[in-house]
Structures are given as C-alpha cells and as structure tokens.
Simulated scan of single mutants.
Amino acid sequence: MWARVSAGIVPGFFLAAALVGLVSWLWPGPWESTMVIGLLAFFPLWIGIVCASLRFSSGKRAWLWLGGLALFAQGLLWLLQLSGWVR
C-alpha cells in the first residue's frame, strides 16, 4: 500500500503540476490570468491522483504508470515551449 501511495505523491505531484501547466498555457489569453485558478485546482487534482494510485494492483504498476504519465506530460510542456507555441 505504501508503494502505491508514494507513487501517487511523488510522480503524482509532477503529473498534477504538468496538467495544470498545460491547461494554463493552452487557455486563450495570457497564462498569468490562470495562475490563481491553477493553484486552486492543483491540490484537489493531486489528491485525486493519490487516491487513484490506490486503484493499481501493485506499487510497481502505479510507479510505472504515474511516472510514465508524468514524464510524458512534462515532456509535452517542454516541447510546447521549445516549439514556440507558448512562452
């Protein structure tokens, strides 16, 4: 159980941050206007990911899935910034 919870806490944090960042950057208008809403949405999203991590059958699967999703989302943020779509 602790492996699944830690998978929700550590890569789940980065996954939640990347998802909030993607929404903030891709929302029309300046991303600064979504800062407060993003900060308010971050914590419930992170807690939801921690709760969802308990649905995995093992800690290894939770770490692989959540870690992979976090890397993918962070990589997508990096590619968007590198391509010049967002600043």
Results as ranks from 00 to 15, higher is better:
Gly67Phe: 07
Phe42His: 08
Trp65Pro: 00
Val50Ile: 15
Leu69Tyr: 05
Cys51His: 09
Arg55Trp: 13
Ile49Arg: 00
Leu54Trp: 14
Ser58Asn: 08
Leu40Val: 15
Phe43Tyr: 12
Pro44Trp: 07
Trp65Gln: 11
Gly48Gln: 00
Arg61Asn: 12
Leu69Trp: 11
Pro44Ser: 01
Ile47Gln: 12
Leu69Lys: 00
Phe43Lys: 01
Gly67Val: 02
Gly68Gln: 10
Leu69Gly: 06
Gly59Gln: 00
Phe43Ala: 15
Leu45Asn: 03
Ala62Arg: 01
Val50Arg: 06
Ile49Lys: 04
Arg55Val: 08
Ser58Tyr: 04
Ser57Ala: 15
Ile47Cys: 11
Cys51Leu: 15
Arg61Cys: 02
Ile49Tyr: 04
Arg61Phe: 02
Gly68Ser: 09
Val50His: 10
Ser53Ile: 11
Leu45Gln: 08
Ile47Gly: 04
Leu66Asp: 05
Leu39Ser: 10
Leu64Pro: 01
Trp46Ile: 03
Phe42Leu: 11
Gly68Pro: 04
Phe42Pro: 01
Trp46Thr: 03
Phe43Arg: 00
Gly48Val: 01
Phe43Thr: 14
Ala41Ile: 10
Gly48Asn: 09
Gly59Ser: 04
Leu54Asn: 03
Lys60Trp: 14
Gly67Ser: 10
Trp65Ala: 15
Val50Tyr: 04
Phe42Met: 05
Trp46Asn: 06
Leu39Phe: 14
Ile49Cys: 03
Pro44Lys: 09
Phe42Gln: 06
Pro44Tyr: 08
Leu66Gln: 04
Leu66Glu: 06
Lys60Asn: 12
Trp46Val: 05
Ile47Asn: 02
Ser57Asp: 13
Trp63Val: 08
Ala41Cys: 12
Ser58Lys: 02
Trp63Gly: 04
Arg61Ile: 09
Leu66Lys: 03
Ser57Arg: 15
Ser57Lys: 14
Leu54Pro: 05
Ser53Phe: 06
Phe56Cys: 10
Leu40Asp: 05
Ala41Leu: 13
Ser57Thr: 13
Gly68Trp: 06
Lys60Ile: 11
Pro44Gly: 05
Gly59Pro: 03
Trp65His: 08
Ser58Arg: 03
Leu64Asn: 11
Arg55Asp: 08
Ile47Arg: 12
Ala52Ser: 12
Ala41Phe: 12
Ser53Trp: 05
Ser58Phe: 02
Ser53Ala: 15
Gly48Arg: 00
Ala52Glu: 07
Gly67Met: 07
Leu69Cys: 12
Gly59Leu: 05
Cys51Tyr: 11
Ala62Asn: 10
Leu40Asn: 02
Phe42Tyr: 13
Ala62Ile: 05
Trp63Lys: 06
Trp46Arg: 05
Lys60Pro: 00
Leu45Met: 13
Leu66Arg: 01
Trp63Asn: 08
Arg55Gln: 10
Lys60Phe: 12
Leu54Phe: 13
Ala52Leu: 13
Leu39His: 10
Leu54Gly: 15
Ala62Pro: 11
Gly67Thr: 05
Gly67Gln: 01
Pro44Asp: 10
Phe42Arg: 01
Ile49Ser: 06
Val50Cys: 11
Leu45Thr: 14
Gly59Arg: 01
Cys51Gln: 09
Leu40Cys: 13
Ala52Gly: 03
Trp63Ala: 15
Trp46Tyr: 08
Val50Trp: 09
Leu39Val: 10
Ile49Glu: 03
Gly67Ile: 05
Ser57Leu: 02
Ala41Pro: 08
Gly68Cys: 09
Gly59Ile: 04
Ile49Pro: 07
Ala41Thr: 11
Cys51Asp: 06
Trp65Lys: 04
Val50Gln: 09
Leu40Ile: 15
Gly68Leu: 06
Trp65Tyr: 13
